Amino acid sequence: MPSDARILIVDDHEDTLYALESALAPLGYRLGRATSGDEALKQVLRGQVGLLLLDVRMPGVSGLDVVRYMRRVEQTQHIPVVLLTGFGADLELSSTAFGLGVADLVMKPIDPWALRTKVRYLFDTHQRHLALQHEVRELRALVKDHTEAGEHPPRPALPHPDARVPTQRGQGAHTGELEQDRT
């Protein structure tokens, strides 16, 4: 996914949207907002969403309905989702949410420090995953092009088996040699 991916915050209460945006602003990520499940789905399907913070209970299309739909569509099924709820711990909600592959279920009021940590981890991990997928596709295309042209794909250069691998300071039997080299 390009670097212009954003975190989409979805809640039907304007004050909650503002509080979440304020909590996440120090991370420096692009933030988007939606006030309904329908609006969230439209933005997610347009692309460039790398993480969804989603209120569970909203009028019309609920947060769980949004997740159910996202998991059925190939382009959105792997976007990490953090569900937000103000109704306390609920075993049925937890079971349903995690069964749908939600990354986390967070109770309101939200601790900004904990939320930043979770968001940073989930967003960055998802971006790295997408970058690796892109690289794999490029490498497969390169191999396919070489194969169709009757060539063998280039092999990576490997060091000679007798090449000496440098040791790290304080590890292995060569520690004494490192100390001698410094004197």
Rank of each mutant, 00 (worst) to 15 (best):
A114T: 12
L20V: 06
R120K: 14
A89W: 07
L91F: 08
G99H: 05
A141S: 12
A5S: 14
H134L: 04
L115V: 13
L51M: 12
E179N: 09
Y121N: 13
E177W: 06
S22A: 15
T35A: 14
S3W: 03
V106Q: 13
L105Y: 08
T175C: 03
L20F: 02
W113H: 14
L100N: 06
V67Y: 01
E135G: 08
A25M: 07
T183L: 15
H174V: 00
V10S: 07
L142H: 12
A131P: 00
T16W: 02
K144I: 03
L24W: 02
R169W: 08
T147H: 10
E39N: 09
P159W: 02
D104C: 08
L64E: 03
S22Q: 15
G50E: 09
P26F: 05
D90R: 07
E74Y: 10
Q133A: 09
K108A: 09
R155L: 14
E39L: 09
H134C: 03
L17M: 01
L83R: 00
A157S: 11
D111I: 08
E151L: 10
L27R: 08
G47Y: 08
V67N: 02
P156W: 07
I110C: 11
E14S: 08
A5D: 13
P159M: 10
H78D: 15
P26I: 05
D4G: 10
Y121L: 13
R137G: 08
Q48A: 14
G32A: 15
A34R: 02
R120D: 14
A149P: 14
A114V: 11
S36M: 12
L41E: 07
P159L: 12
S36C: 12
G176H: 05
Y18A: 13
